[in-house]
Design a protein around this nucleic acid. Structure first.
Length: 718
DNA sequence: AAATCAACGCTTTTT
DNA sequence: GCGTTGATTT
């Protein structure tokens, strides 16, 4: 076997990791150091050099995209389709297991998956059914409570209320939520993981089978694993398996959704014989960018420690631009994009990164008026759109009458005369009988409860419709099923009538759904299910990456989180202001601040050749003008790598600026939004002015002390 | 049952 | 400041 195609493209450190002797391996892989390459080459190495069967390999990632890319690269190296090889997301693999072993997992065979919106709706419904105050029991927070406990592997019965009434109620809601899910035959995302974990934990023979089968367990982005994912991995690996974990503690940016960087440390403790490898050579960025990023991240404590280096050029310095306001910031970026394109660059090589989605707007406006094509990533994905979820609800009801969520969603859509009152009757009945809404409705129509005569007819019509659809759809090809349900349910008509702005787009999306069904081929275990059920499960798990219009030459706009794993020749980190980035809500605790710093590190290390940091002295946020200090992260970057750009482009100054200019009310060099120093309070920004000349009073927002009013004479301009 | 109005709230995101 | 959501109106 010629192994050179596997080993030749690797540097020394990569090769050592790829060819590590069988046993537990932890690879600390810095940004741009070839992490994915090591993972894929390890898989192929294990097959070709160690003689492992593809059948014995399990590789886990966090996103479908990453899983797809990894599969593609492995198959390319192998030269054959990697049949038998399990590559997927944690959720995808858990789903596969649960489909295979639904009995042992105590799930109904045709169980469906709840996305987080569905989950929130269900929780809201439960809160209402309890007559609880929705202001006190916020669905989002209850959802968070449930999910974070599941992420830790905790069921309601494991939780103690500690005689805290709030906690007691939360646990109660969690319990009720579980009952409701079981009754409807649905599982949420966290449940997939927890259920798969319990499946193995509670079925030793099954676990033994998988331990024998999957000797090689490879995990990408290990710093992002949560407790249950880690536990699942550990169960599978046991004492005989070979875990191969790749991660970077400096790129851990998902603590807020349960990720545990500590799992990197934990791995070393749980597998004391593990070998540690470090990938520190960066192939992406210039020396200046890398040194700047290193300087920044050095401010974090408790790092595992690594220092990225490059053999490449130092390159251009990082450019810092201080804009007047957010529009000026966007103008500056526009000009730089034009320059880039004028010098032969492509727009798709440029990324605008920001901390929060709301910031995209100003850039969009500037790009629209400047005729710069752009694409904003994030936002609603295909399968999350309301009309698609309506359609899926019909389909789910056709395949599973007990799905209460779907029942409620479409029972009166399009409106067919089943109002809130009638639904209350059905709900009450269901509650009393402990049955599904569907069964309750059947009973009510049959005279089991006091539905009004008109409502009874309407409800009967709905029940008949679903039954009829189920019959008619039987035996049709998947896309015909979808099409038929869309037509006959009246959904298409409903949206066609809605001639307002969005109706047309919605009908198009529904057509798109039929196309998606036409192109759908079940993978893995999905083949065991009826096509419709497989399609429905697939739709939730893969909420629609595939953007059709991706390949026009567009400037790429996204949040810093979304940018992880990507790279661009030219990167703008915008909104570098304290309070925005680092975000206000992360400023309180040191852990939060350090995560923001890692986020900044991730952002900087996306850049290959050119990196710009921009901030606005004045920014309109939530409708009000605010002034912030430049981000503290700017100061943490060693000065030698930063070059401040003289403002060349200026938008019209807001009236306040102009007025102040002409009246010269303050000391020279001082202005609204300008920076000043106070002997005792340190540095700050002028928020507000009262009066004129030397006796003027100003409000200053100090870095440490917050905002204060004082006489202008105690301040010196910076 | 549609339409209009007031209230709210506002990081980050995948599955 | 804007978009979503729930309540109230007609």
């Amino acid at each position: 076997m010629d192994l050179s195609p596997i080993l030749n493209p690797l540097n020394e450190a990569q090769r050592e990791a790829v060819t590590a002797p069988l046993g537990p391996v932890l690879v600390l892989a810095g940004a741009g150091s070839g992490k994915t390459r090591v993972l894929t080459h390890r898989i192929v190495w294990v097959i070709q050099a160690e003689g492992a069967s593809p059948h014995g390999i399990l590789a886990v990632t966090f996103t479908n995209k990453a899983a797809g890319e990894m599969r593609g690269r492995v198959e390319q190296l192998l030269g054959v389709p990697g049949g038998g090889l399990w590559i997927g997301t944690f959720h995808g693999l858990a789903h596969r297991l649960l489909r295979l072993h639904w009995r042992e997992a105590k799930l109904p065979q045709g169980f469906q998956i709840l996305d987080s919106e569905d989950q929130q709706r269900l929780i809201k419904k439960l809160i209402r059914a309890q007559n609880l105050d929705e202001a006190r029991w916020v669905p989002r927070e209850v959802q968070w409570f449930i999910n974070s406990n599941k992420d830790e592997g905790l069921r309601p019965q494991h939780l103690k209320d500690g005689s805290d009434p709030t906690r007691h109620q939360l646990i109660k809601l969690y319990t009720e939520y579980e009952v409701a899910c079981a009754r409807a035959g649905v599982v949420d995302f966290a449940e997939l993981l927890l259920r798969a974990f319990e499946l193995w934990r509670d079925n030793p023979e099954l676990l033994a089978h998988y331990r024998r089968r999957f000797r090689h367990v490879l995990i990408d982005e290990f710093q992002d694993t949560n407790a249950i994912q880690y536990g699942w991995m550990k169960l599978l690996v046991g004492s005989e398996g070979y875990p191969f974990a790749v991660g970077d503690d400096d790129q851990s940016i998902y603590r807020w959704r349960g990720a545990r960087v500590e799992n990197l440390h934990q791995f070393r403790r749980d597998f004391p014989t593990s070998k540690l490898y470090r990938l520190e050579q960066n192939y992406r960025s210039t020396g200046a960018i890398l040194s700047a990023a290193n300087g920044l991240i050095a401010n974090n404590s408790g790092r595992l420690g690594k220092n990225l280096w490059t053999s490449g050029e130092r390159g251009d310095p990082i450019r810092l631009y201080a804009a007047f306001n957010e529009r000026d910031e966007a103008e500056f970026v526009s000009h730089r994009i034009r320059d880039w394109v004028a010098h032969g660059g492509q727009r798709r090589e440029i990324a605008i990164l920001y901390r929060s989605n709301a910031q995209s707007r100003v850039f969009e406006e500037a790009f629209l008026s400047g005729r710069i094509p752009y694409k904003v990533y994030g936002g609603l994905r295909f399968f999350e759109r309301a009309e698609i979820k309506d359609a899926l609800a019909y389909l789910r009801l056709v395949s599973n009458r007990r799905d209460d969520q779907s029942f409620e969603r479409v029972v009166n859509l399009p409106t067919r005369g089943i109002g809130a009152k009638s639904l209350d009757v059905v709900r009450e009945y269901a509650k009393g009988a402990g049955c599904s809404l569907w069964e309750a409705a059947v009973a009510c129509v049959g005279g089991g409860a006091s539905l009004g005569p008109k409502a009874a007819v309407a409800m009967n019509g709905f029940l008949g419709l679903i039954e009829r659809l189920a019959r008619e759809v039987n035996g049709l090809a998947l896309h015909e099923q979808v099409d038929h349900v869309l037509q006959s349910s009246g959904l298409i008509e409903h949206y066609k009538r809605d001639k307002a702005d969005r109706g047309e787009a919605r009908v198009e999306n529904l057509d798109e759904l039929v196309s998606a069904a036409r192109g759908f081929t079940p993978e893995g275990m999905e083949g065991e299910l009826p096509p419709l059920e497989a399609f429905l499960a697939h739709a939730v798990l893969e909420s629609g990456e595939g953007q059709a219009d991706a390949w026009e030459d567009c400037v790429q706009m996204m949040t810093l989180h979304t940018a992880k794993g990507l790279e661009f020749p030219m990167v703008f980190l915008s909104g570098m202001e304290d309070g925005l980035f680092p975000h206000q809500r992360s400023l309180n605790d040191i852990d939060g601040l350090e995560e923001e710093r890692r986020l900044c590190y991730v952002g900087m290390t996306r850049a290959m050749k050119q990196l710009f940091l921009t901030y606005a002295e004045q920014r309109r946020l939530h409708g009000v003008d605010s002034y912030a200090m430049p981000s503290r992260f700017i100061k943490e970057v060693p000065e030698e790598f930063i070059e401040e750009v003289r403002p060349r482009i200026q938008v019209a100054r807001p009236a306040a600026f102009t007025r102040m200019r002409s009246e010269e009310p303050l000391m020279p060099g001082m202005r609204l939004g300008g920076r000043v120093r106070h002997g005792k309070f340190g540095e700050g920004v002028i928020l507000n002015v009262e009066g004129n000349g030397p006796t003027a009073r100003v409000q200053v927002n100090f870095e440490q002390q917050g905002s204060k009013w004082m006489m202008v004479q105690y301040l010196e301009p910076l």
